[in-house]
């Protein structure tokens, strides 16, 4: 009985440690998505922890400086609030104007979002499903 109790207590301690570790590690590595408008409104909230922002690349906003391998552009998801993105690194293949994009990084100042990763959504199949198409059409109408 005594031995069994010890086993149970020991097992519980190990289990709790594992769960705590697991929870800590996973919460440290979860990245939340925000909208460009939310980020612009309160940039001071987003200058420490990495976040992801999703939007469309504004036409005419793209400035690619090959010498510095620096890419500047603006994204928006409502056609009103535009977020400046600064990205240092090679320009991704699929990067185009009016392209849906996810940027990951932090606010470096009140105006500039420094992205460490650019993610461009692409389908394995070319079928653009209707739902998504509607959304992009919608974006295209709000962003000139």
């Amino acid at each position: 009985m005594n031995k069994k109790l010890k086993m149970i207590i020991g097992g519980l301690i190990i289990l709790i440690t594992i769960i705590t570790l697991f929870a800590t590690i996973s919460s440290q590595n979860i990245t939340y998505y925000y909208r460009p408008g939310e980020v612009i409104q309160s940039p001071e909230n987003f200058n420490t922890r990495k976040i992801r922002v999703m939007g469309l690349v504004q036409s005419g906003s793209v400035d690619w400086k090959p010498e510095k391998t620096e890419l500047n552009f603006r994204i928006s998801d409502d056609g009103r609030s535009y977020l400046n993105i600064v990205y240092v690194g090679a320009k991704p293949d699929m990067f185009r104007e009016k392209q849906g994009i996810i940027v990951e990084g932090t606010m470096a100042s009140d105006t500039d979002f420094v992205a460490t990763t650019l993610l461009i959504k692409h389908n394995e199949e070319y079928k653009v499903n209707n739902h998504k198409k509607d959304k992009e059409d919608y974006y295209e109408t709000v962003i000139e």
Binding site: F22, I25, S26, Q28, N29, I30, T31, Y32, Y33
Partner: peptide
């Protein structure tokens, strides 16, 4: 309805 992503370091650490 909350969009999140779990980063590679999560997998690597464990």
């Amino acid at each position: 309805d909350k969009k999140i992503s779990i980063q590679a370091p999560f997998f690597n650490t464990i």
